[in-house]
Design a protein around this nucleic acid. Structure first.
Length: 287
DNA sequence: GTGTTTGTTATCAA
DNA sequence: CTTGATAACAAACA
């Protein structure tokens, strides 16, 4: 599940290898979430050069001079770059796993071949991801409308979080997951940040004391920056642009540890459904 | 066959 | 209009 740190990992990896490269050809395999139509998509992209790669929250933005290729990986999307072309024949091996192995594999939905024959594979086990081309004005409208502040940006400060929390009675977890308020947090890092700040995920946001919001702010920054340093968390299918797993999993305190002993107080970690998501917390440490 | 997984949006209720 | 709550989507796996 790529959240901000995972998408940032992919962005940095791809930025190091793709800038200045021209799209020579592209292939779409059994994938519908492409905008505009498949024909227009190809027509607009062929021959274009990757000028830069940006990110907003969990959205990747490939800058191609006058237009932008947006890639949202959703839950199981991957972008994997290879210098050497894999032959472009889809593997029929149904045992091929979503992580590791040869490319393309049975989850490869599209691939881009560049002028030097290097290739970018887009894999997506569950086909939730999307590829979309927009011009600059569409992009700014879309970013304005759907994305709030980046956790590590200067404008995201304690005051912003304090005001935000005070305005909503929704549970704090759901608020943190709202991309229009804060862009980039997902299920894993919200559970982790709430554990670090010792706040129960189902607390109404406006019930948090100033001190708690302050701790939460610090926890968000710590979790996100440390996860970026570790190239993200691989729980199921996430890999970086080189096909490698992330290393943050070893630091997870509550996510994926239901019924196990809390690493701080040995109390059993609880799991519940909140905001429609699996939610992990320590009933002793978090209040 | 069933439940579980989550990012995002649509939809509905208040 | 705003806010919040929930279902739906998709596909694979245990």
């Amino acid at each position: 599940m790529p959240e901000l740190p995972e998408v940032e990992t992919v962005r940095l990896d791809l930025r190091a290898v793709l800038l200045g490269k021209k799209i020579k050809s592209l292939f779409i395999v059994d994938f519908k979430n492409i905008f505009p139509s498949l024909n227009l998509f190809k027509k607009k992209l062929l021959g274009k050069t990757i000028v830069d790669i940006e990110r907003k929250g969990k959205l990747l933005i490939f800058k191609l001079n006058d237009l932008n290729l947006l890639v949202h990986l959703k839950m199981t999307g991957q972008l994997i770059y290879q210098d050497i072309v894999g032959g472009h024949s889809l593997s029929n091996d149904s045992r091929e796993k979503a992580v590791g192995g040869k490319l393309p594999n049975r989850f490869t939905r599209a691939y881009f071949v560049f002028n030097d024959d290097s290739t970018l594979y887009f894999n997506d086990l569950r086909k939730f991801a999307y590829l979309k081309i927009v011009d600059n004005s569409e992009l700014s409208t879309l970013l304005q409308k759907n994305y709030g502040l980046e956790p590590l940006s200067p404008s995201f400060d304690q005051n912003y979080l304090l005001n935000l929390a005070a305005k909503h009675r929704i549970n704090i977890k759901a608020l943190l997951l709202n991309q229009q308020k804060i862009a980039g947090l997902g299920n894993i890092y919200v559970d982790e940040a709430l554990f670090l700040s010792r706040i129960l995920p189902f607390r109404p946001a406006n019930s948090l004391k100033k001190k708690e919001v302050s701790l939460l702010f610090e926890a968000i920054n710590e979790v996100i920056s440390k996860a970026i340093k570790n190239k993200g968390t691989t729980f199921n299918t996430f890999v970086d642009a080189k096909g490698k797993v992330g290393n943050y999993s070893q630091y997870l305190k509550v996510y994926g540890r239901p019924k196990q002993a809390c690493l701080v107080c040995k109390t059993e970690i609880k799991k519940m459904k909140l905001a429609g998501r699996g939610t992990h917390y320590c009933p002793q440490c978090q209040r």
